[in-house]
Design a protein around this nucleic acid. Structure first.
Lengths: 354, 354
DNA sequence: TTGACGCTGGAAAGCGCTATCCATCGTACC
DNA sequence: GGTACGATGGATAGCGCTTTCCAGCGTCAA
């Protein structure tokens, strides 16, 4: 009845005693080792462990081994479907590897990324995956230092989508995807575009903007820089961006490209609230192909990124020992849906020009 | 140039040596303690730590203290907005407390919940939050045992929404919310209902079904049990459920209540694919008020649960030392939107009856 | 001047586990 | 029959950190 009696919280020591073997043997049986253990002892240990409801203390293992079984994942906002889909991929792959995922969110301030990396480093995770949309210049050197010293101590780093930091990176070809989208839209007959982009310096957004403009030029068209509005990289940012476009006059715009799907969804709402019908009065396209966009009306044209695959591959990239050759970029694919009908289906609105 | 030269990975020992103080003093300065340290030494230590870029090894702290700084969160599917919104709340509140969140996902098989709890227990988290929709009977005793022994060792448990397990529970009044919804819909003039529910035994779904039926009865109406179809608790499950309802004939149905929003969104799609216009030919309502449902067309009537607040409160519930009195349930609120217009706006379809 | 006492550093004993090293034993080989 | 060697169990020295416990010292009251 003393407090030792409360079962569980059993330690390996307890198991060894119960089984009548040494600590070392118990450890070898229960927690893997190169050494083999005689079946007689093995059975004793396993039974004792079961009887005591033993569960290894991962923290202790970690300090002893100097290595954890955790994966740290850094995202901007876990409630955003883009990130939660990636997280899903990371979690499921980690699960296959017997690893546990720790999630941290930077929230709207990118500066927190550095701080969080620092905190997470304390956990000595096996892998650190940075998926938070990073700003190009910001605290890059400090962040880079932090990550370098993490790697110097045996940690693995994988970065999703960026490509200016000297770490294993899973390229997402944002520029190429946006380029392909632009060409596809040109083929549909669209000629006059506007874009709702994220803040300048947000690499994801910048790449998509650049790619889109390039794709248009490749089709003999242009994206007037006056027609690019900047806004938060969120649903409400998209709403606000579209609001501003409407305010400035939509007359010479046929299609609005939002730098990501959540923004596009916000734009859709803003357009409707302004009395226009998306997909009829104005076409809209997004980027990412988050699950939601199949279900809005009209369904949204977008560039598909296989997000859960991104999560899985990011983890693999960090984990695997591989030739340091460039990793193949995640394939993107244009998905045309109802929000960008053939131009002929659009209510004709005369360009403002002569 | 020897491998000791690679800076970082500095240990507390290193800091102490560098500062010329004892290990104990360094520990007291850097990692909190009741003991005060002379300012002279304090400064020495802090400076040394900064110089060496020291970052405490949380695993080691955990084994020494017998207590971690992590929160384990168990969800069914992190890509589902319901769960990711809750996760968001947990993560942000944990952040305020200096805790780190570990996420595990059971996926479609509820049986994995037990297995995951067992694994997570190995981490000795400070708190374990179970948000995965639990099935009523399933492995309840085994799970209960596991959680009990976790608590016996100082862990804290919080369960979201369920209420049959003997642990701290954050009640979500699914039944009352569904009841209120039913009454609101009755007030709008609806008389003939169907429901797309989750599998029997899934408590969340069962409670909502029960509450909805009760609310209708309170309004002098009934929910014909033949009009309740069961399906997966997912978007595709909702699609499938609606498909079956359409197949069985919609003639005497005015409104379909889906047991959660993602199902409702799937139902919306199925309805459209079958050639009907939701909100005109048939009304639809969901439950949860995930962000998406504002943006589908028509916007979805639902019962709002403040999901991020649920996450935050679940963590607080686990963390706080409080009177073991019942915790106030999370308030739910009916939100009427375009998917359930006043009945007069619905295309009249004669009931199949006489 | 002498204790008693509060304050603060340091030594060292763990926390639960791993991994190295040593001891023992059985077997194969000449 | 003796030796070398592979197998396998046990003792034990850590892993990085916390937290007693003890010692030294300055202070204050008697």
């Amino acid at each position: 009845m003393d407090r030792e009696t409360t079962r569980s919280g059993a330690t390996l020591q307890d198991v060894a005693r119960e089984a009548g073997v040494s600590l070392a043997t118990a450890s070898r049986v229960l927690n893997g080792s190169t050494r083999t253990v005689n079946d007689k002892y093995r059975r004793l240990v396993v039974d004792a462990a079961a009887r005591l409801d033993y569960s290894p203390n991962l923290s202790a293992q970690a300090t002893a081994r100097g290595m954890t079984t955790t994966v740290a994942l850094l995202v901007a906002d876990i409630a955003d479907p883009y990130f939660s889909s990636i997280a899903d991929g990371v979690v499921s792959e980690a699960d296959r590897e017997g690893l546990i995922v720790q999630i941290a969110a930077t929230g709207p301030e990118p500066a927190r990324e550095l701080e969080l990396v620092r905190t997470l480093r304390g956990q000595r995770p096996r892998v650190m995956i940075l998926a938070a949309s990073r700003h190009s210049t910001h605290a890059a050197p400090a962040l880079s230092d932090e990550l370098a010293s993490f790697e110097a101590n045996g940690g693995r780093v994988a970065i999703v989508g960026g490509n200016e930091l000297p770490f294993r990176t899973l390229p997402v070809d944002n520029a190429a995807g946006a380029d392909a989208l632009a060409r596809a839209l040109a083929t549909l007959g669209y000629r006059r575009f506007a874009m709702i982009a994220g803040d300048e310096g947000l690499t994801t957004s910048d790449d998509r903007l650049r790619g889109f403009a390039a794709g248009l030029e490749g089709s003999g068209l242009t994206l007037d820089s006056e027609r690019v509005v900047r806004s938060d990289f969120t649903r409400d940012g998209g709403y606000e961006g579209m609001r501003r476009l409407v305010e400035a006059g939509l007359d010479d715009i046929e299609l609005v490209f939002a730098a990501n799907d959540v923004m596009a969804v916000g734009a859709l709402a803003a357009l409707r609230d302004a009395g226009f019908e998306p997909g009829r009065d104005l076409a809209i396209a997004g980027f990412d192909d988050i699950p939601t966009v199949r279900d809005v009306t009209p369904a949204l044209t977008t560039v598909r990124i296989p997000l859960d695959e991104v999560g899985r591959r990011a983890l693999r990239l960090a984990l695997d020992d591989f030739e340091p050759a460039t990793t193949a970029a995640v394939p993107t694919a244009v998905v045309l849906r109802g929000s960008t009908p053939a131009i002929s289906a659009l209510t004709p609105r005369p360009p403002s020009g002569p």
